[in-house]
Design a protein around this nucleic acid. Structure first.
Lengths: 225, 225
DNA sequence: CGAGCCGGTAACTAAACAGTTACTTGATGG
DNA sequence: CCATCAAGTAACTGTTTAGTTACCGGCTCG
């Protein structure tokens, strides 16, 4: 039933400048807008992003954008929610409790670093949202449980490590997560100013690999007995 | 526009009589604009900052702003340069080489954290500049030597620590600095989203103090033998 | 078969914005 | 004592922007 390609083209249009009929695909249009918006907001922030630019990137127009998402702010919030759901979903699939505590933490650190590296738009969106003091995120209800799971799982792993005597008793799950995230976030999100003032390209593979090892090393030595 | 006759009421002159002359103080006006611009750019980013808002905050008007700084971009660059000069100047005054290596590094970590805490506008400006891939910072020549000094001094302290056998041989000055800056920057610049998703106010004194101790602990354990 | 719904387009509008211009006031040195 | 210039004000301008409206045309179902 999937009509791929052209069905009978009986359409000899009379007027419109665009004679080519776009095949209708609401789901695709919606996804294209969301994707285009993600890139536009990530590159230019909330204040700098242009609604016209998003429509153009999505290969559609403003009318559709307002039709599906309401207005610029609601679209931005959807982009942000989507970004959070993506990283937390991938994170869950790790199941850091399946390995030894030490390996579990190391795995989480590696995953986080590599996810940040492959999703610069996520870091950028976080930066924008924080510039505005989480003005839009705070309105979103559906995001909290997403995170309580992360802390819960991390807490279990730490407890097990403490019982086994490999981790110090004061190790705190939130602190461990913040440590991992800090080291990845700052290096990447501030790579441009850092590369400029220190005169080294931080994105060179050699430096990236060194920093990856550094993150794991710092995280583990800070909680090991 | 303004037609001749009609000398009755209502002749709205284009130029209202200046009732009182503000005392002239070019240096003060200049400083007021720079200060107002710092706040406006920090709060709204480059795209969100409004020239009119800066003029109003400074208690002056756009004409003066353009007179002293050329245009919005040049003003922004001056704000950014000023911010970097401020932190590096304060940092230099620490003289971290005067203490034992361990104390020196701890001192640098404490200073950095506290400076970030007291100067949220600096963090915000860094975020904005990185969103734009250091577009303006790269144009600034006068900022590189400012930073080579920092790395040089840090390198000396680490060398001394290695000689004394208290630091590991692989400790790298840039990595140490990035570690310290990461842990402070992320916690503060992302405090709004983090507080929201984890349901804790990260700015509460208890949590701030705990994180301060954490930064020093993490930094030192990562390089100690 | 035709009414009306739905995905889609382009031109429009009111407001906001960066940057300019026309003008005023007062201090100073010749 | 006035010519000149710098500090300062507010209205203006051309452009950009978020959001709207008028319209198009194919598809579906009664």
């Amino acid at each position: 039933m999937n009509d791929s390609g052209e069905n009978g083209e009986k359409k000899r249009s009379r007027r419109p400048p665009a004679e080519r009929t776009a095949q209708r695909d609401p789901e695709r249009t919606r996804a294209a807008i969301l994707d285009a918006a993600t890139r536009e907001f990530a590159e230019n922030g909330m204040g700098g992003a242009r609604v016209d630019a998003i429509a153009e990137r999505a290969g559609t127009n403003k009318r559709m954008l307002y039709h599906y998402f309401g207005d610029k702010e609601q679209l931005y919030l959807r982009v942000l929610e989507e970004a959070y759901v993506s990283i937390r979903t991938a994170e869950r699939a790790l199941h850091i409790g399946d390995r030894s505590p030490e390996e579990g933490i190391g795995e989480l650190a590696l995953f986080t670093w590599r996810y940040f590296l492959q999703h610069p738009e996520f870091l950028s969106l976080l930066g924008t949202e924080n510039l505005h003091r989480a003005r839009w995120l705070r309105q979103s209800v559906r995001l909290k449980e997403l995170h309580s799971h992360l802390i819960g799982e991390l807490s279990d792993v730490l407890e097990q490590g403490k019982k086994q005597g490999v981790f110090i008793q004061t190790a705190d799950p939130l602190h461990v997560y913040l440590t991992i995230a800090s080291l990845g976030y700052f290096y990447l999100s501030n790579q441009y100013t850092l590369s400029t003032i220190f005169g080294r390209d931080l994105l060179e593979p050699t430096h990236l690999n060194a920093w990856e090892r550094h993150i794991v090393h710092v995280t583990l030595t800070s909680i090991k007995r």
